[in-house]
Design a protein around this nucleic acid. Structure first.
Length: 420
DNA sequence: TCTGGGGTCCTAGGACCC
DNA sequence: TCTGGGGTCCTAGGACCC
């Protein structure tokens, strides 16, 4: 029995439209942090030639002149709309894997053998549209990789029902022959290049390769892709949300930074936020890493990238420890006379909060444990940050530019839409 | 003079994804 | 002038063990 992939259509752009019916059929783009580049486009915006990931300043004039609308990213809104969509999916299927903010896999094994899957897909699509306003596409196929191919067919052929089912051998072969190999899930830029050189151009070409040969020539990962394209299920639905293995907080700066005295407090901000996430995950980490880099686009200026880690003697999720480690890690990688454009903090080597591993020189009878202090700070900062650590910089945390953000329609009482 | 074989664990780096 | 952010998995190779 097959799987289904439910995929929200231009998700961020669609979210912006839900409370703005005046934007129906209008071009909409959503911008990244600092309004840097385009990260989502409605189909009208795509038609205006706005590419994915292009720098906003390059397309801005032409786009706005042609009646386009632009928004800074509003993750409070997108996260909440996503949760609503996922709730609906969980109500129609006992087995849902939330794969990303705008995608979920459904296991259809539990449905009746005689159930019409295509009609089920249409029903789910209609339900989500009616209850949340979010347009979705549905792909139904025997494996995850093939559901992705099905979704690609919906896009490419502009299927009116927004549902494509690939069940029979003919349906699968035809769809594969119409899909360029670079569009296959798991084939990125590098692999695409390599495969093209070998004359493997369509998804069908790849499906017809010998899996053992692909494994030897490339990797076990691509071998699985080949098998999945042939209808052999290698990737199962994951029910439990796996514990995170690393946490990253990073940002590009609104303005270049060339002094350690400016950079240090920004990195502290990242460290504080990363540690909050870590406690939220109920984990501790053994390592904090810091990275900095100049702008790779500014090739006239000297470039530098730095990465450095600090190891703790014991796992910790105490912000004071992480701040200390981040500070030590940053110092040797910062070089004066460079203009830094981005920095980040990465936590890794996690262990469960409940597990205590004492070091050889630590007295187990007198454990240092102020975890309640961090808990109180988390509670107090939950709604709005009220307590800062001394090394933080309170003014550099927010992006410099985010002028086009829409209201938090669904998550803030003050910003709820009003009806006259 | 001659210096094994088999294994685990860890991590950096590459490729990919949304 | 202005170019995102946050993840995963796999592999090769080094450190270490017996």
């Amino acid at each position: 029995m097959p799987l289904a992939l439910v995929d929200c259509d231009s998700f961020y752009a669609s979210c912006e439209r839900i409370f703005r019916p005046d934007l129906k059929n209008k071009p909409i783009v959503v911008l990244s942090n600092n309004d840097g580049c385009v990260i989502a486009r409605s189909k009208e915006a795509k038609a205006l030639g706005v590419g994915m990931g292009v720098p906003w300043f390059k397309v801005k004039d032409h786009y706005l002149k042609n009646g386009g609308y632009a928004f800074s990213s509003n993750f409070a809104l997108y996260g909440d709309m996503s949760a609503r969509v996922m709730n609906i999916l969980e109500s129609v299927s006992p087995s849902v894997e939330v794969y990303s903010i705008d995608e979920a896999f459904l296991d259809l094994d539990t449905l009746d053998k005689n159930f019409n899957l295509y009609k089920f897909g249409c029903h789910v699509k209609g339900l989500i549209k009616q209850w949340t306003g979010v347009p979705v596409r549905v792909g139904i196929a025997p494996t995850k990789t093939l559901t992705k191919v099905a979704i690609y067919q919906v896009k490419k052929m502009n299927v009116a029902t927004r549902v494509v089912q690939l069940i029979t051998q003919q349906e699968i072969m035809k769809a594969l022959s119409l899909t360029p190999v670079g569009e296959v899930w798991g084939v990125g830029r590098r692999l695409n290049q390599h495969l093209q050189q070998m004359g493997i151009v369509s998804a069908l070409d790849l499906a017809q390769c010998d899996p053992a040969y692909i494994r030897q020539k490339f990797s076990i990962v691509l071998e699985r892709t080949v098998r999945e394209l042939r209808g052999e299920r290698c990737l199962e639905i994951e029910h439990d949300v796996a514990a995170k293995k690393q946490i990253v907080v990073s940002r590009s700066f609104g303005q270049r930074v060339d002094h350690l005295s400016v950079l240090q407090p920004i990195v502290s901000n990242f460290a504080v936020r990363a540690t909050e996430k870590l406690r939220d995950e109920k984990q501790k980490c053994l390592q904090v890493s810091v990275f900095v880099r100049t702008s790779p686009f500014n090739d006239k200026k000297p470039q530098h990238r730095g990465f450095n880690s600090f190891r703790f003697p014991n796992p910790t999720n105490d912000t004071r420890d992480i701040l200390h480690g981040a500070k030590i890690a940053l110092k040797p990688i910062f070089r004066p006379n460079y203009s830094y454009a981005k920095a980040g903090v990465l936590l890794s080597l996690f262990s469960n909060e409940g597990i205590k591993q004492y070091s050889l020189f630590q007295d187990p009878d007198e454990p240092k444990d102020d975890s309640h202090l961090m808990k109180y700070i988390d509670v107090m900062n939950a709604y709005k940050t009220q307590i800062y650590f001394a090394s933080q910089n309170t003014s550099h945390y927010s992006p410099v530019r985010q002028n086009m953000i829409s209201p938090k329609y669904t998550t803030s009482w003050h910003e709820m839409p009003l009806v006259d």
